[in-house]
Structures are given as C-alpha cells and as structure tokens.
C-alpha cells in the first residue's frame, strides 16, 4: 500500500477548475463567432485565427524564455484573449497590426504582470486600445457587413458604425436625432455621394451593421451570456449594473433632450456594450471581488461609457470605460468589503 496522505481539511474539492471556467467562456463566445463569420465572411475567420494563434505563440514564448511559468498555455486564457482581441477589431485589419495587438495584449498587459491572475487590466482591451491609438485609420474603417460568405478577403466596402455616424452628424448645425434617423447621412466616398442609413433596431440586434467583429450582434452575445450565467461562470452583478446604468443615464439625457440625445435602446444594442458588459467587464481577474464592489464597478462603467459616447472625442466608450474602471479595482476591493457575519447585530456595552 502507498503511504497515507496527510493534509489539512477540506479533503474534497469541487470538480471546477480554471481550465473549465476558461473553456466555458470560449463556448459562450461561439454564437458571436458564428454571427461574425456570417456577416463578415472569411475575413472574420482570418482575423480570429491570426489573433488566437499570435496570442498563444506569445504566451508560449514568454513563458518559455522570460518568466519560466508552469505552462499556463493550455488553460484557455490566451485563447479567450485572442478571440476577444479579434472581436474588438474590424474584419479588414492587416495581419501585422493584429500581431502587434496580440503582443501588447499578452506580452505587456498580461505576462509582464506575472501571467494569468496577476494582470491589472483586461489584456484584450489593452491590445485593442493600443491599436486604436496607434493605427486610428485602420482601426476605424469598418467593412459593411455582407451576409453569408460574400465578402472577399481584399476589397470590402467600408462604412461607418451607427454610433460613429450619429455622433459625427450630430455635431453639424441643426441636426437632430430624428432627422438623421429618417434621412440618413450623406457623404462623399470615392467621388460618389453615398447615403448611409442608420440600421433598424432589428438589424442592430441581429448584428447587421458596421462594427468590430464580435460587437455587432447583441442577440448572439446574449445567448453566450445566458450560458455563462447558467453555468455560474460570471455573476449577474456587473452586467446588470453596467447595462442598467447605461439605460438610466442615457434615458435621462434622452428625456431631457430627445433631439440631441439618442434613445437608450440604441445605446444598448450598438457598439461594444453587450460584448463589454458580458465578456470583458466580467473578466474575473480585473474585476472586483465582493458583490457590492461589482455593483459599484458596473455603475462606474455605465456612467463612463455614456459620458465618453455622448461627450467624449470617441464615438465608442466601452473599452476606455472598462480600462479606467480596471484601474479602480484595487481601490474598490479595499472600500467595498462583503457583508460580514455578525456585523449586522449591534451589541451594547
């Protein structure tokens, strides 16, 4: 017989593991992956493949030559970062830019902090924001979605995102939300006058609009989110607080001045809000621990997102909002402790 083992209690352990959690997130992203392939064709496959492979390679190289980790390559976290990075870029992005994004995401934002669990910021978003600032032109030319495998790998027609178009147009004299919605936006592209119509709400929900790979289809993201909530991979606090705050804040603005501010539903289904709320803000590593803290985190995200979208220089604020709030996580963890047993009762004397 083998020697008896001795250890402190507990002697049983859940069958949950980091790997299972990570793969759960990957399964939850499948609907969004399928939708992006449907709308952006082979380009979507290309971007995602390059991104995932680059992320895995960099994690492998860093672990092998720099930090001598214990092989976290198989735990699936690099795959998630790869897919999320791909989700956050347009489908026509050149491959070298994607690789640069992957280097920044994995190499700088994740591994330089000490690998999985140690990073302060969401790696995929750091990569994305780095690219957005470094390659603003490439990062903001959005191919117009063409259902089914129509789009070729080279000359996709580009157009604006609903959020971007609306924001640009609202800056003009006398523009109102209603007018833009009805008349569309006319601009000159390649010497021709093109009229861009803001997609209908149905199209927005389904994903038939310009934008990054993963952010277009709210419905696919919601399916994935439901899966993660049922499997208890994520908790409800952050997404609910985030989306709720966006709806309330945008709703207040909209009610105050419907001509200048678009309705909250538009905010909810366009841009990367769904993607951010369910897949990136809930990233365990860079979100607060207590449920109170998570609510605060979500509210902060909502306020920042709407502020940036409505008043900021960029049409889209999800990435920045999440990164800014990531920085506040240690502070939130200090300030918002879980409810403690025996604290409610006050004993005199």
């Amino acid at each position: 017989m083998e020697l008896l083992k001795i250890s402190g209690s507990p002697h049983i352990h859940t069958d949950n593991s980091v790997k299972k959690l990570m793969y759960g997130v990957i399964y939850a992203m499948i609907p969004a992956i399928l939708v992006s392939v449907y709308f952006f064709g082979l380009d979507a496959v290309r971007v995602m493949l390059i991104s995932v492979v680059a992320c895995l390679m960099i994690e492998y190289l860093v672990e092998k030559y720099l930090i001598k980790g214990n092989g976290s390559i198989t735990d699936g976290s690099a795959v998630i970062t790869g897919i999320l990075l791909a989700f956050n870029v347009p489908s026509n992005l050149p491959w070298h830019i994607i690789v640069i994004g992957a280097i920044v995401a994995i190499g700088i934002a994740k591994m330089s902090f000490g690998g999985l669990g140690k990073n302060l910021f969401n790696p995929a978003l750091v990569g994305r924001v780095f690219l957005l600032i470094s390659f603003p032109v490439q990062m903001t030319s959005w191919p117009v979605p063409k259902p089914m495998f129509a789009a070729s790998l080279t000359d996709a027609i580009t157009g604006p995102t609903p959020l971007g178009a609306l924001k640009e147009e609202l800056k003009k004299q006398g523009a109102t939300v209603q007018k833009i919605m009805e008349d569309g936006i006319s601009f000159i592209q390649d010497g021709e006058k093109v009229v861009y119509h803001i997609p209908s709400t149905i199209d927005q929900v389904m994903g038939n609009m310009g934008g990054s790979l993963g952010e277009v289809s709210a419905i696919a993201l919601l399916i994935g989110a439901a899966y993660m909530l049922i499997r208890k991979i994520i908790t409800w606090e952050i997404p609910l607080a985030y989306l709720g705050t966006v709806v309330v804040f945008a709703g207040v603005l909209w009610m105050a001045n419907p001509e200048q501010f678009v309705n909250p539903l538009f905010h909810l289904v366009t841009g990367g809000l769904m993607l951010g709320a369910f897949f990136m803000a809930t990233d365990m590593v860079s979100s607060p621990m207590s449920s109170k803290g998570q609510l605060v985190f979500g509210v902060g995200l909502g306020v920042l997102t709407v502020l940036i979208r409505v008043f900021g220089a960029y049409p889209e604020g999800v990435s920045f909002a999440i990164l800014i709030m990531n920085a506040f996580v240690p502070l939130i963890d200090r300030g918002f402790k879980p409810v403690r047993f025996g604290e409610v009762v006050k004993i005199k004397g």
Binding site: E2, L3, L4, K5, I6, S7, G8
Partner: peptide, 22 residues
C-alpha cells in the same frame, strides 16, 4: 524516512500544528 506523505501548503508552522511530521 517518510511514514506518511504530507500534501498541502508548504509551511512548517502549519504542518507543525497539523500533525507530527512525515
């Protein structure tokens, strides 16, 4: 030589409190 195998946090004080030693 080992009579039992300890498996857990690598810390003398903890093991000291847990049992007599391997």
């Amino acid at each position: 030589p080992q009579k039992v195998v300890y498996d857990g946090a690598s810390n003398c004080t903890f093991v000291h409190n847990l049992f007599g030693g391997e």
